[in-house]
């Protein structure tokens, strides 16, 4: 079973977001990193980039494939986790902590309503892993 922290919000594309006032910290879920296996490269967004909900925020690459990381919300990228440039495998080791990808200044908090709770996400991954 994959690890799904209660306090986070999720997308059907396996991103998580942690809300800290008007900032959202974004990463990929334990389920996602497990499916990818070894993450060997992360293409981070540029600071100041305006991102839209459900559009490309970053790219995460394993040996075999390239996967989009979609932004769970619209807003401006205010920080990217530069540590992932040198140690992309941090995503495999600690996807909800040190392996965060970007911090986004949230444009419209109403968008948060469409995100999934931990419980909903658990159901989604439960059905996908069968």
């Amino acid at each position: 079973m994959s690890n799904i922290p209660e306090q986070l919000k999720y997308t059907k594309d396996h991103e998580w977001i942690k809300i800290e006032e008007d900032i959202g910290i974004v990463g990929i879920t334990d389920y996602a990193q497990n499916q990818l296996t070894d993450v060997v490269f992360v293409e981070l967004p540029e600071i100041g980039k305006q991102v839209e909900k459900d559009k490309n925020l970053a790219n995460v690459e394993s040996v075999k494939s390239v996967s989009d990381v979609f932004s769970p919300i619209s807003g401006e990228v205010i920080e990217a986790n530069e540590k992932l440039s040198d140690s992309p495998e941090t995503i495999n080791k600690d996807c909800y902590g040190e392996g965060w990808i970007a911090k986004i200044k949230i444009k419209d908090k109403a968008e948060l309503d469409s995100l999934m709770s931990a419980e909903d996400y658990k159901k989604l991954t439960g059905s996908e892993s069968h």
């Binding site: 296996t37 070894d38 060997v40 394993s62 040996v63 075999k64």
Partner: peptide, 8 residues
């Protein structure tokens, strides 16, 4: 059991 591409 298979592991990961890099490990293999």
């Amino acid at each position: 059991m298979y592991s990961s591409v890099i490990d293999e």
